[in-house]
Amino acid sequence: MIEYGRSIKWYNNYRDEVEFSEYNKFDFMQIWFVKGELAIDKVLSPKEQYVLNSKFPVIIHALYDIDDYDKYNDELIRILKYLNHKEVIIHPVCESIPINSETIYTLAENIYKTNQLLKGSNIKLYIENNSVIDRINYTPEDLKIVFDRNPDVELILDIAHIDDYSHLQKILEVKFPKCLHIADKRFSVEHEHLPIGQGELDFKLIFQNYLKGYDGKIIFEVVDTDEEIIKSKNIIERIVK
């Protein structure tokens, strides 16, 4: 069953974000976890208590640099358990050290150790593919190293991170996703997340030829106007149905 989520506008009033999501029939929202805390403005700490009291489903999207795992795993797991979550997304990047041929193996091992901790709390881990600007967990070869080491970790596929449809096909040959990040892009631009229909991605082609039969979570990473968010959701719903 398809579930539709959206990445919140972290700079908005959180209650307004919840009301918008409820009114437009989103099933859940995505909240970023960065440098040890939830990325939500205009909410006093403890932020996780406010999120829980708001009573609208969310999923945590943790942006982790290569050396963040040991630093922030304990706090991430504490928040996940407080929120009674059974799933979490980690978006791996590498900005603190130069990337070389061994870095992907360090990442794979960091993910392995983190996944062992999460499994101890019965929490499923999703790992995101990167775009060309990040240069780690971006190529299909990188993804294969990560998922060979972590076969029980799931892929969250960010479609806006692909270079072309050949890149997409090679990623899918490594692992079929259980969760999607959805936004549009132009192929001439290394990294962007546009409202659906404003870029060059052919989502009808993607869902009919590459993601045929997809039945999981779809998270819109569109933080433009309310109208563009609603239109993006309507377009994808029509294609998927």
Rank of each mutant, 00 (worst) to 15 (best):
K124Y: 06
I133Q: 01
E109K: 15
K119R: 13
E109G: 07
G120P: 03
H91T: 14
I99N: 04
I90C: 13
V93A: 13
N100Y: 12
R135D: 06
Q116P: 00
T139R: 07
T114V: 10
L125H: 04
T106L: 15
I89Q: 07
N100I: 05
E102Q: 15
K124L: 11
I133L: 03
R135N: 13
I145Y: 04
L118H: 03
I133A: 01
S96V: 12
L143E: 01
N110Q: 14
D134A: 09
E102S: 15
P98A: 09
S96Q: 11
P140K: 08
D142Y: 00
N115R: 11
D134H: 12
L117E: 13
R135S: 09
T114I: 11
I127H: 03
S101L: 11
V93D: 11
T139G: 00
T103F: 04
E141P: 00
Y138E: 04
N130L: 11
I99H: 05
K144T: 00
Y112H: 14
I123T: 09
D142F: 01
L118S: 00
L118M: 03
D148A: 05
K144R: 10
Y138T: 01
Y112P: 00
T114E: 10
V146E: 04
Y126K: 01
T103R: 01
T114H: 06
K144W: 11
I111K: 03
E95H: 13
D148N: 06
L125R: 02
I97Q: 15
F147M: 11
L117I: 06
S96K: 14
H91M: 06
S121G: 02
N137F: 05
T106D: 13
E102D: 15
I123W: 10
N100D: 15
E95L: 13
T103G: 03
V93L: 15
L107K: 04
I136C: 05
L143R: 04
N122A: 05
P98Y: 09
V132G: 00
T114C: 14
I89S: 07
I136A: 06
N129P: 00
S131V: 02
L118R: 01
N100V: 06
N122S: 05
I145E: 03
N110W: 12
T114F: 13
N122P: 00
Q116C: 09
L125C: 03
K119S: 04
S101Q: 12
L117F: 10
E141W: 11
P98F: 07
N100G: 08
Q116G: 04
E95M: 10
H91C: 10
L125P: 01
A108Y: 09
I99A: 07
K113G: 04
T114D: 06
V132D: 08
V146T: 07
I133W: 02
G120K: 12
I111F: 04
T139K: 07
I136G: 02
E128P: 06
D148S: 12
N110E: 14
Q116M: 11
H91A: 09
K119Y: 05
